[in-house]
């Protein structure tokens, strides 16, 4: 029997991991996180159809495209994408370790690094195919409110979908790396998402350059909602990088993180508890 190539082994692991990711207990959380914005959009649209002006700022009703921009920022970019990345990314390796099933994978005649890559690909496909359709549905529900044009704003939606896909991929890679290197990676992941990234973005100086959110948020075509003091401070000190440099940095973070995760699996000795 010939040893499969790295790519072949990764695809085999991908095939196995898809079902495991889709039908795990975490799926309930993913459904809640991705379905929340759709429910909110449906409520807002229903109120609009019922003739009730749903959202007002300084007495003026807010149009659908602006509402969708707010949901993109506040729900998807600041919550859904990083949290899904943390939940699934950290579990790619650590679940196998905690369930003591990683031994079975290691006994297979495949490169150890392909385990991380295959599971990571499965994570990207599953989360993207759950989150992106909900974004699309939210857009279709919200944009017509206040006379917004679905066609005219569609290029922005394509950009949004691309940004979310990139965000899921980069956060997933970064947290897969953490999952392969750190014990209790979920705690570390949540600390990074709700602690480090939030603080670093509002601190003047260069610290924000060590966050994924800094590069990801600079790509967003919508204006950042000034929903709270933190956002106001963030926009005050904001000097967003160019789109090209943001994409390059994000791709670099993705590549380095995956390489580190794969290398950790290749070299690290996992001691499974009783």
């Amino acid at each position: 029997m010939t040893k499969p190539s790295f790519i072949g082994a990764s695809l085999r692991i991908f095939d196995i991991a898809v079902s495991k990711i889709l039908w795990s207990r975490r799926t309930a959380f993913m459904a809640l996180a991705a379905g929340g914005p759709v429910v909110l959009a449906a409520v807002l649209r229903s109120l609009d159809l019922a003739g009730m002006s749903t959202l007002r700022v300084n007495g003026a009703s807010v149009g659908g495209p602006v509402m969708f921009g707010g949901i993109m920022w506040l729900l998807y970019l600041k919550f859904v994408v990083p949290v899904l990345g943390a939940f699934y990314g950290t579990s790619l390796v650590s679940d196998e370790v905690e369930d003591k099933t990683i031994t079975y994978l290691f006994t297979r005649p495949i490169p150890r690094g392909s385990i991380v890559i295959g599971k990571y690909l499965a994570y990207v496909v599953c989360t993207a195919l759950v989150v992106l359709p909900t974004v699309l549905v939210s857009y279709l529900l919200l944009t017509p409110i206040g006379g917004g044009s679905i066609g005219a704003n569609f290029p922005n939606l394509l950009l949004d979908l691309g940004i979310l896909l990139l965000g899921l991929a980069v956060y997933g890679a970064a947290f897969a790396c953490i999952g392969a290197l750190v014990p209790r990676p979920l705690v570390a992941g949540l600390v990074i998402v709700f602690g480090w990234e939030q603080v670093a973005l509002v601190v003047p100086g260069y610290l924000r350059k060590f966050t994924v959110a800094y590069y990801l948020q600079s790509l967003v075509p919508h204006a950042m909602p000034q929903d709270d003091t933190v956002s106001a401070i963030q926009s005050l000190f904001s000097q967003p990088p160019s789109a090209v440099s943001s994409v390059l940095w994000l791709l670099a973070i993705l590549a380095v993180s995956l390489w580190l995760a794969a290398r950790a699996l290749e070299t690290r000795e996992f001691v499974l508890g009783q």
């Binding site: 889709l22 496909v125 992106l132 359709p133 699309l136 857009y139 569609f154 394509l158």
Partner: peptide, 23 residues
């Protein structure tokens, strides 16, 4: 499940593109 989600996404994007180029 994946096939259904992919079809939903593609139909949505296709419809949006038709709306965009129909402007």
């Amino acid at each position: 499940f994946l096939l259904g989600a992919a079809i939903l996404l593609l139909v949505g994007i296709g419809g949006g593109l038709i709306a965009y180029f129909g402007l």
